[in-house]
Nucleic acid binder design. Sequence first.
DNA 1: TCCTTTAATGAGCTTGACTCGAAAATACCG
DNA 2: CGGTATTTTCGAGTCAAGCTCATTAAAGGA
Lengths: 244, 244
Amino acid sequence: MASKAVPAETQRAKLERKEGVILAAARAIFVDHGFDGARMQEIARRAGIGEGTIYSYYESKAELMLAVLEQFWDGLTREAEDVMVSVQATDFFGRLEALAAYHLAAVIRNSDFINLTFALRRNNSEVSVSRDHLRQYVAVFDELFLRGQDRGELRPDAILWQARDIFYGSLEYSARSIEMTIDAERIPREQGPVVDQMVALFRSHYGTGDSAVATGTAGLAGVETRLDQLTAQIETLNERLSGA
Amino acid sequence: MASKAVPAETQRAKLERKEGVILAAARAIFVDHGFDGARMQEIARRAGIGEGTIYSYYESKAELMLAVLEQFWDGLTREAEDVMVSVQATDFFGRLEALAAYHLAAVIRNSDFINLTFALRRNNSEVSVSRDHLRQYVAVFDELFLRGQDRGELRPDAILWQARDIFYGSLEYSARSIEMTIDAERIPREQGPVVDQMVALFRSHYGTGDSAVATGTAGLAGVETRLDQLTAQIETLNERLSGA
DNA sequence: TCCTTTAATGAGCTTGACTCGAAAATACCG
DNA sequence: CGGTATTTTCGAGTCAAGCTCATTAAAGGA
């Protein structure tokens, strides 16, 4: 009977909804108090359920945290994929710039979760964010890089995992440096240079000679044009500085 | 009498020795079981003292951990300084290679402590390894880099903290990648390429024209890369000026 | 409506960091 | 040396928080 299927579905839906409520409550409490500081009782209270009920959904506090983190990383992955879909640039370096800008901003914005991810992984050896979730996130970079190699924009002998470590490692440390900057106002302005630097690094270290040609600024003439432009800009800057 | 002065000294020495015993025991237990897994009782037993005695030396478990970590980082710093003293190479890139090789090996060898350092810093916001200790460690890189700039081996417009983040960030992620490799036998062989890559990266990205010519990556592509870098720097300057 | 199955609950159990009063060791003084 | 003051050590006891489980409530099915 149809009446049979419908309750069965609504029941499951109800459970899933409750699971979502628990997850949301846990997320809020974990962000506020960190892993150790979060009290299961408070999470239960916020979710509007008894403390014991949580344990019929998640084995332990650590696994609850894990679920929160995996949900978070899935969201990050989706956003990164969206960025790669919606970015206009078609060349590797333009797309890399978009990814770097997104990643850096995301790491700074969600530093709580990033930190909790690695803190848990390091502290609690039994429970850690499944490698697949992180792998899926960095897969966005991997695909971009491999495609860049296919198109001849990147050196074919470059090793993917080394490039990946340079990309994510540098950006994570940069994010930390930027966060440490006391003057919070300046933070957004520091992100640009870091991203530019990252792109320039990949260009100089992994780029092939062709890429310059491919970007349309062909040949010696293009270089001279750009030099003229830069010279003009520097003159402008000099005037400003001497005037101020 | 001399017999009077001696006990006074031996007393202090005795306390310091006991402190050292506690630290050593804690270090062993923390490495074996991680921060949460370590039991104060076990540390006390290993040190051959009562549990309460620990608390007359250290305020809390977290502070005990802190003392262990600071001792560890001081050792690392000393070793890194020794490496920079004893390395034969006089040029920047040769010395950088030595530092990178040392750091990568140290991170892999002491991954427990590295992880615990950042886990504690992230998890337990009240207690974290004093920034000075870490700063002292990276000061070895800073000094090397600044000297490279003074000697004209590195671009004078390079920004120190960005270079530092690239160096340590990339190496930490690389260390993690290497550790993840299942085949433990191959690990020593992977360290070489990573170090070489790091040096090559600094050469191509931060090296001055002289060294670029030496490595043969001169030509139109190299010029365009430098143009990109200049453009990025000018943008930064523009933003700073307009913002200020 | 009654029975079976599933879900929810919170009082209590367990564990481990930390406290504290007492005892042992040490230092000080006559 | 003997006695007293001070310091150091100790481990049983306290407390807090994650987790369990017997009980209760709800839902499903005939």
